[in-house]
């Protein structure tokens, strides 16, 4: 019984982290280009310049 008091919140907390991660990824539009992202992971060259220095 006592184990439940610890384990249930822990499992819920871990699940919530996953859910928040999913919502964050959705909001930052990481699901917009799934085909591109799948290929992009294999590029090891320096990524294109992002910002002017």
């Amino acid at each position: 019984m006592n184990a439940l008091i610890l384990l249930v919140p822990v499992s819920l907390f871990l699940g919530l982290i996953g859910l928040l991660g999913f919502l964050w990824a959705l909001r930052t539009r990481q699901y917009e280009d799934l085909d591109g992202a799948a290929a992009r992971i294999l590029f090891d060259d320096p990524p294109p310049k992002e910002k002017p220095e």
Partner: peptide, 9 residues
């Protein structure tokens, strides 16, 4: 060229 990004989808 500052940024070039292609979306495959």
């Amino acid at each position: 060229m500052l940024r070039a990004r292609v979306s495959l989808t």
